[in-house]
Design a protein around this nucleic acid. Structure first.
Length: 298
DNA sequence: CAACCGTGGCC
DNA sequence: TGGCCAAGGTT
């Protein structure tokens, strides 16, 4: 079934040629972008769209051009600069990763997957994305875009089922060109195809370079028939409340009294639970006089 | 493996 | 309007 795409060099070239012509001009793809810049982009892009990441990324690289410069900032400064990208624990983990890189790796982002995996906030996807995009290495880079393209083009399914790291990486491994540079370009290309053409909602099959090779296309584009994808609620959840609490601290220069935090959510039980969880996560600190502040800002 | 962790835009 | 979706990771 995967035989149509098993002739790797041809399909890889098709995708790479398409990417050369249609890939977006993103700052972290510029030749002068450092591995550190690539790492910062990958962390910011975890579950956050490119359009919101780009301006923040530019500020960060200007302000903290090396891991050691970010490591020198306080956690509060980092959380403020993170702004509303979401999932602020990513900012803290990136700060911690920067410290480890500065002190244990000579201020140079590691280039091998296993070393990258040992850093906070870097998982299976990000480690391989950095190896591929920052260092031009051959590694199966599997994100939501790649999983969708493989599900369709290779397996003929309408969409990817539940993620299975081992299986998904094996699928991509089988498509990857054998040498480093083409493999890294292929990884960027297939991800970009999923982002721009083979999209989740209304894929633009008419613009797809794989039309004719795509198993889903040849099967008549059957609808997705796998298990229903879990829907993440947001309104009313702790995630919303934590976000509201943190937003107060981001928008205030110094420590705030608890009454200021009490104003953002009416349910006191949930409010307090969320404040405690933020304290436990190190996203908020309490001052000696009982006020609350971003970590390291008092 | 499932649940949890922010935020905003789109159809 | 509200569910879906967005370059995941950790527990």
């Amino acid at each position: 079934m995967a035989a149509t795409l098993a002739g790797v060099p041809i399909e890889a070239d098709i995708l790479i040629d398409w990417f050369d012509e249609h890939g977006r001009d993103l700052p972290w793809r510029h030749p002068e972008c450092t591995p550190w810049g690539v790492l910062v982009s990958e962390i910011m892009l975890q579950q956050t769209p490119v359009a919101r990441v780009q301006p923040v990324w530019l500020e960060w690289l200007d302000r903290w051009p090396r891991p050691s410069s970010l490591a020198s900032a306080s956690q509060g400064e980092v959380l403020r600069a993170w702004g509303k990208l979401g999932y602020p624990r990513r900012a803290l983990r990136l700060h911690a990763a920067a410290s480890a890189i500065a002190t244990e790796h000579g201020d140079r982002v590691p280039d091998d997957v296993d070393t990258l995996l040992a850093l906070p906030g870097i998982g299976a996807y990000t480690a391989r994305a950095v190896a591929a995009f920052a260092y031009g290495k051959r590694a199966p880079v599997v994100d939501t875009n790649v999983r969708r393209v493989v599900a369709r083009a290779v397996h003929g399914a309408g969409d990817a089922g539940p993620a299975s790291n081992t299986r998904d990486m094996a699928d991509v491994e089988a498509l990857l060109p054998s040498s480093d540079t083409p493999a890294a370009r292929f990884s960027a290309a297939i991800m970009e195809l999923g982002a721009l053409v083979c999209t989740a909602r209304s894929p633009r099959c008419a613009d797809c370079p794989l039309t004719g090779l795509c198993a889903w296309q040849r099967a008549g584009k059957p609808a997705y028939s796998g298990p229903a994808k879990p829907v993440q609620k947001f309104a009313g959840t702790d995630r919303q409340v934590r976000g509201l609490l943190l937003d107060v601290l981001r928008n205030t220069s110094g420590p705030v009294a608890k009454t200021a935090l009490d104003a953002v959510w009416s349910k006191s039980g949930q409010r307090d639970r969320c404040l405690h969880s933020l304290l436990e996560d190190g996203l908020v600190e309490q001052t000696t006089d009982g006020h609350f502040a971003l970590p390291g800002e008092h």
